[in-house]
Write a protein that binds this DNA or RNA. Structure first.
Lengths: 349, 349
DNA sequence: CTGAAAGCGCTTACAG
DNA sequence: CTGAAAGCGCTTACAG
């Protein structure tokens, strides 16, 4: 009995009485040998159980792995279950797939904050929504292409949207009908973790390169323009964009006495807005009659339901596509600003 | 000016006047050298821009990459946006991450049906929901661990649920209140693509190893037990578990004249059930008064809304965890059957 | 605790 | 169209 050692290209070459170069060519450069010989090699390989050149050796030799890593800001668990991140990933995957590349998923916040050693196998890195000062960034291999998404890294190409302008537009739309008691529900706005009302005791994250601050700036601009003092609008904050984390904060807001309860909720994400909608429905608060709600993101879940969410759509799939194309060198490595679009649903007519 | 060549372990060894083995040990086996020397090496490495041993070379040398590939039945785009697949992936990711492994995503149905060459870099494969006769399976490297999920591969460990029993239970629950006009909405039941009513002209997929057939068998068993002839229950089919594909089929069902319109929908997925719910709401069909609906899967979206979906929950995250643990050898490589749980929501009280 | 050396499995100019 | 040979960047017994 032969020991169950994996067959190598060299074994196959010996077996067939040809050189290793020829076997390699049969798999990688069909034009370098006769079709007849190639067929013979391929079929013998299949018969003998050789499933093609080993990727580890190949990538060492060529220097390229055809693997692109996406570094996600949050845990993989969170990101995979978040609609916005999932859409982004699917855009990346679509382009990589079409070009014979595969996708390696790396968590930004792991059990240790350093990237797994296997990370540097990637030909390039797409970094999604990480804070620019993150340690992880320093540890990524030098001299490998890197594209950042939703934040800027010095000297790196970036894809993002104009958060301020987008939230300005949705807020202007909502404010056309003047609210009595507007409120803003932020997503990760404060330095200190905060699930609830934002007070003077909280420090806001720096205004540069923080999505929440950019969106808040848009809301404030719109409020001022409509004669509402931004400082008078209650600010709430939510730490994680999941139902379970949003739910208690929104319950607190909606369970206030009716004369204090907001009649307009400007939410920084569709997840927040959808949670608000669910809790309102459970409490018999009518949307939009008693409470108007706007979201941000334009995820499918908000549009494939009744009432449809009024929100602003960012093209997350498109972001992923652009980022992947930049990494593959099919798009110039520069700043890319994607457009957003108002989705006029039923929750804030 | 030095050419911008990446620094290697060897370069660093020369620079520091130690052997390559020592550098390697500094990164991989802290116990093999003095802490002082190790510190010096690590800090010099950081200073000189050496970001650790190259993963390609390391994996060639050690034979292991610490990468696990998940092969998804559908396109990556579909899978990443499907709640069930995403939950599964997050279970896998969670376990891999905790053990310093990373996740490579491979599409089962790609632009060409063969796995990318980089696939065989993985230490092991988790194959999710692929048809067992899929060509791709033959092409995966031999002698590398493989776990299949939701279907059986000869001689391979598997994790799955008892689909027949689960759908039997949810159907029994729904049938306690006898429906006038029940209907079953299947997911990928027929050989011929079919979005609409299933007729005698359609061929059903083989009953072994097809999830839909297993679930349908459970429904039929329950119907018979409640004195309803399964053959008399209209069967509909849907090809893809997305709102856009479900929507027209469900519109066709709900737009029938009221005396023909079903009053109970046994759906094979929560996505189908949620789409039915949305369309019913848009049409003013009251759920559950005029129409009762059951789902299958127990995705978050069905529970985090009003009315809550009545469904049977499968632990997709748990499936992912178990599959990953088997691949890593932390769980015996055998058949694993996970439990399901009835979720009694509002859509079919 | 450290160093010299073999070799993981390939690909690629290059010579024939 | 084919073959001999170098070398990609590491890790790991092994000897010292």
């Amino acid at each position: 009995m032969t020991p169950p050692r994996r067959m190598t290209l060299k074994d196959l070459a010996r077996e067939l009485g040809v050189s290793t170069a020829t076997i390699s060519n049969a798999f990688n450069r069909p034009d370098q040998l006769s079709p007849t010989l190639r067929e013979r090699i391929l079929s013998e390989a299949a018969r003998l159980g050789y499933s093609g050149p080993d990727a580890k050796a190949r990538s060492l030799r060529t220097g390229r792995s055809r693997i692109v890593a996406v570094v996600l800001a949050e845990s993989l668990t969170y990101s995979l279950n978040d609609a916005v991140a999932s859409e982004f990933l699917s855009g990346v995957a679509e382009v990589l797939d079409a070009h014979g590349h595969t996708l390696l998923l790396l968590p930004g916040r792991g059990h240790d904050s350093q990237p797994a050693g296997s990370a540097n196998i990637a030909d390039g890195f797409i970094v999604y929504g990480l804070m620019p000062n993150n340690q992880l960034l320093q540890r990524l291999p030098y001299q490998r292409p890197l594209v950042s998404v939703d934040f800027d890294v010095e000297g790196c190409p970036t894809v993002h949207i104009d958060d301020t302008e987008a939230s300005y537009r949705i807020a202007c739309y909502a404010l056309k009908q003047r609210p009595e008691r507007p409120a803003i529900i932020n997503l990760r706005l404060t330095v200190e973790p905060c699930n609830g009302r934002v007070t003077a005791a909280h420090t806001m994250l720096p205004s540069t390169s923080t999505i929440s601050r950019a969106r808040l700036a848009g809301f404030y601009e719109a409020l001022e323009e409509h004669g509402i003092t931004p400082g008078a609008v209650p600010l709430w904050n939510i730490e994680e964009n999941t139902f379970d984390v949003c739910s208690p904060v929104l319950a607190e807001i909606l369970d206030q006495p009716e004369h204090l309860r907001p009649d307009l909720l400007l939410c920084m994400s569709d997840r927040i807005a959808l949670t608000a909608l669910t809790l309102a429905e459970q409490r018999g608060i009518r949307v939009p009659e008693d409470l108007r709600i706007t979201g941000f993101d334009g995820i499918a879940e908000g549009q494939y339901r009744a009432p449809r969410l009024t929100t602003v759509r960012q093209d997350s799939v498109g972001k992923g596509r652009v980022a992947a194309q930049m990494i593959l060198g099919h798009l110039p490595a520069e700043q890319q600003l994607l457009k957003t679009e108002l989705l006029l649903g039923d929750t804030c007519p």
